[in-house]
């Protein structure tokens, strides 16, 4: 069971949205390098429970890097130090025995902390509800192969669609901007023939909703792309800007 790593964790604890939070220090001992980061957190939490203390709340679900639920800011980086990896896929072999690890929630006024490391990302849902769809009713569609899509476009649309909505882009951006997230969705539809009819309306509505949610603005530091576990490209942001300018000024 036990491994040989001993770590010091500085973890953000916050009782609820209205409470103010603070860092608490915990020792994680007997950690195996083969554990995932969340498994290490499990070990710490089991200890806390058995000591009669309140375990650390954190979001997680699939633990295979696809659901987008896990969300820790580890040692100053969204999802920790590795590129293209979510927290749940980050393994402890990335750290050294004796390391101190700082763990914080995503910080953004659009993502209020619910408890400890758990934040409310429903702003992302509302942005999608504003226009992140093609308006087709079930059943009223033509044969799937009736509209050919150039492979390059389909592949590029896929790369944009690979976003898992985890919010790391917002967390990593010094301005808490959500532009990478929004632009990925805008791009996916802008690249496919199915998205053309509502193309202008979609980008306008989604950007407006994004602005209402209180995210910051993009200053093209490209930290979002660097920290995105799915490596969504900032070229999506350029495309969204283009789409928005076109939609607002030329259509």
């Amino acid at each position: 069971m036990s491994g040989n790593m001993n770590l010091t964790l500085k973890v953000w604890r916050q009782k609820n949205t209205s409470a103010s939070g603070t860092f608490e220090t915990y020792q994680a001992s007997g950690i195996s390098p083969d554990m995932s980061f969340l498994e290490m957190m499990d070990v710490v939490n089991e200890d806390l429970i058995k000591q009669g203390k309140d375990p650390i709340a954190f979001d997680h679900d699939c633990r295979e890097g696809i659901c987008g639920m896990c969300s820790m800011y580890i040692n100053g980086r969204a999802h920790g130090p590795l590129k293209g990896v979510t927290t749940c896929q980050l393994h402890m072999r990335t750290f050294k025995d004796g390391d101190t690890i700082t763990i914080e929630p995503w910080r953004s006024s659009a993502f209020p902390v619910l408890k400890d490391l758990v934040v409310d990302r429903s702003a992302f849902d509302r942005i999608q509800q504003a226009g992140g769809f093609v308006s087709v009713n079930t059943g009223s569609v033509q044969d799937a192969n009736s509209i050919p899509v150039p492979k390059e476009n389909a592949d590029e649309a896929f790369l944009s669609a690979a976003c898992i909505g985890c919010g790391a882009c917002v967390a990593a951006c010094k301005n808490s901007s959500a532009m990478l997230f929004v632009s990925a969705k805008v791009s996916q539809y802008a690249l496919l023939p199915q998205g053309q009819v509502e193309r202008a309306k979609r980008v306008v509505n989604m950007v407006e909703q994004m602005d209402q949610e209180g995210f910051g603005n993009c200053t093209n530091t490209e930290a979002c792309e660097a920290e995105c576990p799915k490596q969504i490209s900032v070229s999506n942001i350029a495309r969204m800007n283009r789409e928005y300018i076109k939609a607002k000024l030329f259509s």
């Binding site: 087709v136 079930t138 059943g139 799937a144 192969n145 050919p148 899509v149 389909a154 896929f158 996916q188």
Partner: peptide, 21 residues
Amino acid sequence: NIIDQCVAQGVPFAREYGGLL
């Protein structure tokens, strides 16, 4: 019908060079 529906929603399925699924 499922495939038709998903394609119409903008699901980016893998395609061949001719543009078909």
